[in-house]
Computed example of a mutant assay.
Amino acid sequence: MTAESFTETKQREQDSILEVRNTSVSFDMERGKSKVLDNATIDIRRDEIIGIVGESGSGKSMFASALLDAVVAPGVLTGDITYYPRPGTAVDILDFDRAELQQHRWEEISMVFQGAMSSFNPTMRIRGHFEETLTAHSVDLKTGIERAHQLLSDLYMSPERVLDSYPHELSGGMKQRALIALSLVLEPKVLVMDEPTAALDLLMQRSILRLLTDIQEKYDITLIFITHDLPLVADLADRLAVMYAFRFVEVGSTEEILQSAAHPYARSLLNATPNLNAPIEKMQSIDGSSPDPVKVPPGCSYHPRCPLADETCQENDPAYHTITADHQAKCFHWEQSAEAIPFTLDQQESDQ
């Protein structure tokens, strides 16, 4: 290893809390092998908020499951997922045995799954869910419940009222906040949130986002926010990672993605995203449909829907091209995408 590459490796270890390399999830089906995560590669930085965005079925939830090695059989997870609990200390998540994995989940990396409505046992008070989690991880109940009180207070709820309630006695927003508190009670370093506000109204969604920002800053956690709602996460995230056909096709700072997205899909996604400030006629749907996981097109997987696609795109899989130091896109024609696919974000902002 050269001195330069050694320095780059050490810097990456300092900056990254998770490194995902060539990670795939596949299922054997009667009609062929279905790959629902395809060689996903990304670094998650320590203490950042990163938004994972894309259409439904793009692989976002499977990526979340892979981070916890929680892919359900008969799914097969392959690749490398390295976790850095501290800078310079590397742990291979996919090498854990069952006991190590049980400890890792919730204590190091925790997750808020879709649908708070179905995440709680309806026959158990909220306090019971906290006690069950604390006991399973051998945490002193008194200390753990004190932390639950603090977390619930931080989320602007009455701790005793919430803890003594059954799930059906709480509103949807209260259940979601209680679930966030439960996911943080073991003091994880990473919190993965999979469509956490999907069932909530717009006002409650915005309220939850403000609370998450406060929680992230207070507890110094890394937050991975997975959603199909790009404008929602844009108000929260430091960086955005755009998924298409089970891969990351563009990653960059939120500002750079919103102002100068380089991948044709990312630009089309911005044009297709509802915006209260934009006339309905300015919204443009993306022609075509997402690929079948059993029959992903060869070459660039987006080429059947892309106005810039040519023979090179049909035959070859593009590498990641560096736009700036913090912005990469997986596209042969990223330099032509702005002219070919203009989007209206600047116009929307100027009309406000």
Score class of each variant (00 low, 15 high):
R125H: 13
R125A: 13
R125C: 11
R127S: 14
R127Q: 14
H129R: 09
E132L: 08
T133C: 08
T133M: 15
L134A: 07
T135R: 14
A136C: 10
A136Q: 13
A136I: 06
S138C: 07
D140C: 12
D140E: 15
D140S: 13
L141S: 09
T143F: 02
I145T: 11
E146A: 15
R147K: 15
H149I: 01
Q150D: 14
L151Y: 11
L151M: 11
L152G: 08
S153V: 01
S153C: 06
S153H: 12
L155I: 06
Y156K: 14
Y156H: 14
S158H: 11
P159D: 09
E160Q: 10
E160W: 01
R161V: 02
R161M: 11
V162Q: 03
V162G: 05
D164C: 03
D164I: 00
H168A: 05
H168V: 01
E169W: 01
L170D: 09
S171F: 08
G172N: 07
G172D: 06
G173V: 08
G173D: 03
Q176F: 05
Q176N: 04
Q176L: 05
Q176K: 06
R177F: 02
R177T: 01
R177G: 02
R177Q: 02
A178Q: 01
L179P: 00
L182C: 00
L182D: 01
S183A: 15
L184N: 07
L186S: 04
E187M: 08
E187W: 00
P188N: 07
P188F: 03
P188T: 04
